[in-house]
Simulated scan of single mutants.
Amino acid sequence: MKRLLEAAIENNREWTKKGNVATYIPELSKANKEHLGVAVYTIDNEEYYAGDCDVKFTMQSVSKVVALMLALLDNGKEYVFSKVDMEPTADTFNSISSLEKRNPNKPLNPMINSGAIVTSSMISGKDGSEAIERILKFTRKITNNPTIDINYDVYKSEKETGDRNRALAYFMKSTGIIEGSVEDALDVYFKQCSIEVTCKDIARIGAMLANDGVMPWSGERIIPRQIARIVKTIMVTCGMYDASGEFAVRIGIPGKSGVGGGILASVPGRMGIGVYGPSLDAKGNSIGGLKVLEELSRELDLSIF
């Protein structure tokens, strides 16, 4: 496995030159576009990694998986999906127009920005500070890494440039989809996106999901099997934005990307995979990371289809 991962990195590193780092959040533009790393964590508690696997990056939209798990734990699926739909989108991840196309103005799914802001608003806590502490504590637990924290430089950058997310949130407040404080929900969302991890961390999240909610390193069940299955299904249909269909055909496993360059993938009953490559394609997905996953899927016969 180690040799396979090293080969996948070397075979696909050239792709990093064909994309671009995210610049609409200024702090993300500082990333090295040639970085490329991968980590695998199996449900048998084995770990393998290669490339730039210890480089830290912010979760960005990968955090939407964590927020959805917590929202489902706190509220149950009936309430969560009364506020956010579970359908794929052909629009961009920060689309405003998609909110008005659907009745009753629900976001299409929890993996786009509007849907994720809603799920963040559902996480229990007396205020936004308590909610983000619960997200941090949960993230540390499911990565087996107690040192994980927020990158406050990225958080500040996100907050200062987050006007489109504010527009989405206030629109949803006007239609009753967001019930509490809009500013609290936004602050939680900006902070959860700014949680800093490595490939190894998100591979462990993928392994827990692959193991139907049981953490392989401890044997502890952290989420019910049903929630793990809901999350993996939505990752398949919606996790790669408007490239989710192509990802399902080419790679064929549950995955969730983020504009920080991370992709969290989960192979049911087998392993979690974390990749990092901040050079993005036109749809906001790691261009090198996708190629690494495609090679691993082909070599290890990972597709669930």
Rank of each mutant, 00 (worst) to 15 (best):
G239Q: 00
P224L: 00
M208G: 11
G213E: 00
G115V: 04
N211D: 01
E220S: 07
S194F: 03
N151Y: 09
G128K: 08
G206R: 05
D127W: 07
I234C: 06
V197H: 14
G128T: 01
D212C: 06
D201K: 02
Q192G: 11
G115L: 09
C238L: 02
T198F: 07
M240R: 01
K156A: 12
S244K: 05
T147L: 11
A207K: 09
G206F: 05
C199F: 06
M208W: 07
T237I: 08
I117M: 05
G125A: 04
N144L: 03
A131E: 09
G115C: 09
C193E: 02
E179Y: 10
E183R: 02
D242Q: 13
T237P: 15
G176L: 06
Y155M: 02
W217S: 15
T233W: 04
R225V: 06
N145A: 03
Y189N: 08
Y152L: 10
G213V: 01
K191G: 09
C238F: 05
L209T: 07
R204G: 03
A243S: 14
W217R: 05
G245N: 11
E183M: 03
P146D: 07
I112F: 07
I123F: 04
N211K: 03
G115N: 10
K137T: 11
I177V: 13
D242C: 03
K137R: 13
V188G: 13
V118Q: 07
P224F: 00
E130Y: 08
A116T: 02
K173T: 02
E196C: 04
I142Y: 06
F247K: 03
G206T: 02
I135N: 14
I132W: 14
V236S: 14
E196Q: 12
I202E: 02
D153N: 14
I142S: 11
P110Y: 01
G213R: 07
